[in-house]
């Protein structure tokens, strides 16, 4: 680690590496979301038998984590480097460790561990098993084998690697605050993000128009349900993402009473489940275009599943 990689070099190296491994390089999805998992490139694509290998950087917004640009580790918006592969390759751990070496992290100089961590996203009805990967005691990656997505048990397992880019970069660059990370030579993270971090914190904690947000939540939910009924999977999912973000904004104001919280989460989860099923139907109708073999078998299997319902 003699030459310290900049933030964007880290992204470029990871993109190059996973691209060489045959992954699609996607772009961040353009609707606000709390985690890379919520991108349709992970959530929807991890459903069904079609192979899917993709990598992308996902700026993830968590209104309640905003700290007015003052806390060295907590951010309103952080960046995840997301990698998904379906079916999960047997050599995925080795592939992952090589990606760290590409970033100049020689495992012999460090303590790298796979510590059990089972991941769950109740609002999307997702659950998986895996690890958090520790680099000298710091959690740098969430490593998950998806078992259930949108409430459906998977047939082909997606493995998801979520690299916390700010953490990795502050480790690689040996800085104590994310704001001191060099994004590129001569430009610091703080010089780009301190202001939006501050403003979004003010907005999320103090200035958001709750009345408007509650109305939006209602309207978006209605729209999502309507679109689900029409079988318009992707627009429907966009509205679920919007609902989720609006919910997080309301939550950051402490305006969701504990009593109402489970109900909101349940409503979002139910929509995500319906969308998961609808997505599978649509892909089956299209004969699972990304499937290279056994198409007939899978199409039949999913049509049977559909009839059984």
């Amino acid at each position: 680690m003699d030459k310290k990689l900049t933030f964007q070099e880290i992204i470029l190296k990871l993109e190059r590496y996973w691209s060489d491994k045959g992954c699609l390089l996607m772009n961040a999805y353009d609707t606000e979301k709390g985690a890379g998992t919520m991108s349709p490139y992970t959530f929807l694509r991890s459903l069904g038998p079609e192979p899917w290998n993709a990598a992308y950087v996902e700026p993830s917004r968590r209104p309640a984590d905003g700290r007015y640009g003052q806390n060295p580790n907590r951010l309103y918006q952080h960046h995840q480097f997301q990698l998904v592969m379906k079916p999960s390759p047997m050599e995925i751990q080795d592939l992952y460790l090589k990606s760290l070496e590409v970033l100049g992290i020689n495992p012999l100089d460090h303590d790298i561990r796979f510590v059990e961590d089972n991941w769950e996203n109740p609002s999307l009805g997702c659950a998986g098993l895996g690890w958090e990967v520790w680099l000298d005691g710091m959690e740098v990656t969430q490593f998950t084998y998806f078992q259930v997505v949108g409430g459906l048990e998977v047939d082909s397992v997606t493995v998801e690697l979520t690299y916390g880019l700010e953490r990795l970069a502050s480790y690689i660059q040996d800085v104590d605050s994310v704001y001191d990370i060099e994004w590129t030579k001569g430009v610091k993270y703080g010089e780009i993000f301190t202001e939006p971090e501050y403003e979004h914190s003010v907005y999320s904690f103090e200035e958001s128009n709750l009345e408007m947000l509650f109305e939006q939540l209602k309207a978006y939910e209605k729209e999502a349900l309507h679109l689900i009924d029409l079988g318009l999977v992707h627009p429907a999912y966009d509205y679920v993402l919007k609902c989720s973000h609006i919910f997080n904004l309301i939550d950051a104001r402490g305006a969701v009473s504990a009593t109402e919280r489970p109900d909101y989460l349940r409503r979002i989860r139910n929509m995500a489940r319906k969308i998961a099923k609808a997505f599978l139907n649509e892909r089956a109708k299209r004969d699972f275009p990304l499937l290279k073999e056994d198409t007939a078998k899978w199409v039949e299997k999913y049509s049977l599943k559909e009839e059984a319902k």
């Binding site: 012999l108 303590d111 000298d136 005691g137 710091m138």
Partner: peptide, 22 residues
């Protein structure tokens, strides 16, 4: 307790110190 030998053990310790400090 590191899963490895004592190569760059000071570096490993420093990395861990940073994490616990945060």
């Amino acid at each position: 307790v590191r899963n490895g030998d004592d190569r760059n053990i000071e570096g490993v310790a420093q990395g861990n110190e940073k994490v616990i400090a945060a």
